[in-house]
Structure formats: structure tokens, C-alpha cells
Design a binder for these strands. Structure first.
Lengths: 155, 155
DNA sequence: ATGAAATCTTGAAACATTCCAGATTACGTG
DNA sequence: CACGTAATCTGGAATGTTTCAAGATTTCAT
């Protein structure tokens, strides 16, 4: 959010006080194109772009970017984590139970109220409200009776 | 929710069209006492009560009970899944980032709006809105500067 | 009481993620 | 612009949760 989406990745990294490395630059670039990626597919993208990239590096990069607030981790129940650029708009996610397809849902739209944060409960200090809507995408609704298409992690 | 909390476990199972077995009866009984349990601690409880119970049986039982709507699975990001009796009240959860403590948060209380379900978006048919609030419990707030207590899965 | 289907046991596998030790790299200093 | 140090990356192994597979046991309707 502190950076427009078209800011040079290296600039974004420096602005966040992070070192500029190949995997990090490439990760930011790929995340811009890819939407919501899991670790495995991001690793494939990085390797296609850079050659050899260790699995550990992928996890490290994502952790660093996440900790810096540049990237947001989404972890739908029962599925590997996905990552997306953090645009600071605090949107939520809609996940298909059938195929795992994940789409963004804007916060505070229509019947969908945005949630208060910075609230206190049970003595807790709440800093984030994570909302995940579960349902069936059009495709999986169609094949609900004839389950022929194997669940696939689409974007 | 079809059953009062004090209904005999065997009756609950039969009412849901499920077979009555030792592990299932014990699981329902333990879940009443335990609050939010992970698979491992439920397994320990079942073994203490019944003697030998396979890990697989624990997973099978929880899946069956979950599919039947008697039990609800909570899967906070980065932590093993927890299970609780499904009272049908559609409450949400508040998780401590420090120690993993999990507490219930009633739906539609004060600034906390209950979410619409049965809504359609992107062609999706939404059947559930899952909300997880993240924050710090009182203990972890206190030890935020002097992180001495190792994260523990409390209830 | 009997049999078919569901459930449980045991042991192994799959999977995402993390740990470890050492080599390499980025970048503030001199 | 060369250096040194801390941060980062590589490669390989390990961890821990969850699932798979095959066979024994149990539940429940007949």
C-alpha cells in the first residue's frame, strides 16, 4: 500500500528497508502477474525466471515480504498457503470448496460489512479480522451432481 | 444444534444417522468438556478413556462428525486444526498470535456484524462466512517486550 | 443369529514447511 | 573502489500433520 503497483520492485524493497536480491525482485514481479500463488507455483515461476532457486529461499523471501507488509498470506483451511501483494485495501477472499479457486471480495460492499479492527475482547488486542467466504464456483456447481473435474488450484 | 448439549452422545449419533461406536461416543463426550481441541489432544483424551485408539480412527471420527454437522473444524493459519461441538450459533474465533490461545466470539455483537450467507458473488454460491480475529491475549501483551513464555496451544 | 457394509487397527506414505551448516551476496565503510 | 560483516541463499535432511492402503473387527438391519 505504501507503493503504487507499478513501482520498481527494487525501489519497493529499499523503501521497506530490505536488501535487494534476485529472488526478492523476481518474487515481487511474479506476484504482480500471478494474483494468488502458492509456494510451489511461485517457486516454479522464480526458477523459470532466475534458474536455480532453493525451496528455502522461496519460503524465506515470502516470510520477509510478508513481515514487511508488502505481501499478504492467505491460508484457507486444508490448503497450502497462498500469497498476494498487499495493496492495503483489506479485501477478503472467496474460496471454492470444490476446486480451491480463490477470488478477491471487496470489503464493505453491499451486505458485506467491513469488520472493525483495533478492538478489544477478552482482554485481547485485535489487529486483524480475517474473513473467508466458502462456497462453490460456477463450474463446481455445474458438476456438483456429476463430479468429474478433479479439484485444481486455480487462481 | 439439532441436539441440546446434554443429549446422550449415542442418541445424537443415531439422530444424525451415524453408527454408534466407542470412539465416536467418547469423542462427543470429550468435545463437550474440552472446548477447542486439536487432533493430538483429543487422541490423548480418547486413549485415556478407551485404551487403544488409532490415530486414523481419531481423524475418521472427526471427519464423520464434521461432515454430519455435529462438529466444527477450525483451522487457524499455521496451526493444526481444532475441533469444537457445532452449536449452530455461528460464532467466530479470536486467536492469539503469540500463544495460539483460541476463544469464541459471539456473532453480531456490538461492532461485530454477523455476516450474510447464502449470497452469490462471482457466480459463487456462498454457504459460509468464516471470520478469524487475530491479536494478542493479555499474557502475550505483557510479555511482548520480554518474550519468555514459549507459545503454547491453550484452549 | 447372520451377513454385508461401515468402521477401526497397523504401518507406511505424502505433503507443506522448517531446521541446519556452509557458501555466497549485498551494501555501508574506509 | 576494495573490504568486512551480516544478511541471504543453497542443498540436504528432518519435522509434524494428515492421508492412504489392506486387512481385521464391529455395527446394525434382516
Amino acid at each position: 500500500m505504501p507503493f503504487p503497483l507499478d513501482t520498481e520492485p527494487a525501489t519497493v524493497l529499499r523503501g521497506a528497508g530490505l536488501r535487494v536480491t534476485g529472488p526478492r525482485v523476481a518474487a515481487l514481479a511474479e506476484l504482480r502477474e500471478a494474483g494468488h500463488v502458492d509456494v510451489d507455483s511461485l517457486a516454479r515461476r522464480l526458477r523459470a525466471r532466475l534458474g536455480r532457486v532453493s525451496t528455502q529461499a522461496v519460503y524465506d523471501v515470502l516470510r520477509v515480504l510478508t513481515d514487511a507488509g508488502l505481501v499478504r498470506r492467505i491460508e484457507p483451511a486444508g490448503a497450502p498457503a497462498r500469497y498476494e501483494l498487499d495493496g492495503g485495501d483489506n479485501h477478503h477472499h472467496l474460496v471454492c470448496r470444490g476446486c480451491g479457486t480463490l477470488v478477491d471480495v471487496p470489503c464493505a460492499t453491499g451486505i458485506r460489512p467491513c469488520l472493525e479492527t483495533e478492538t478489544t475482547d477478552h482482554g485481547f488486542v485485535v489487529d486483524e479480522a480475517e474473513v473467508i467466504y466458502w462456497g462453490l464456483c460456477p463450474n463446481c456447481q455445474a458438476s456438483a451432481l456429476t463430479p468429474n473435474s478433479a479439484p485444481t488450484q486455480q487462481d
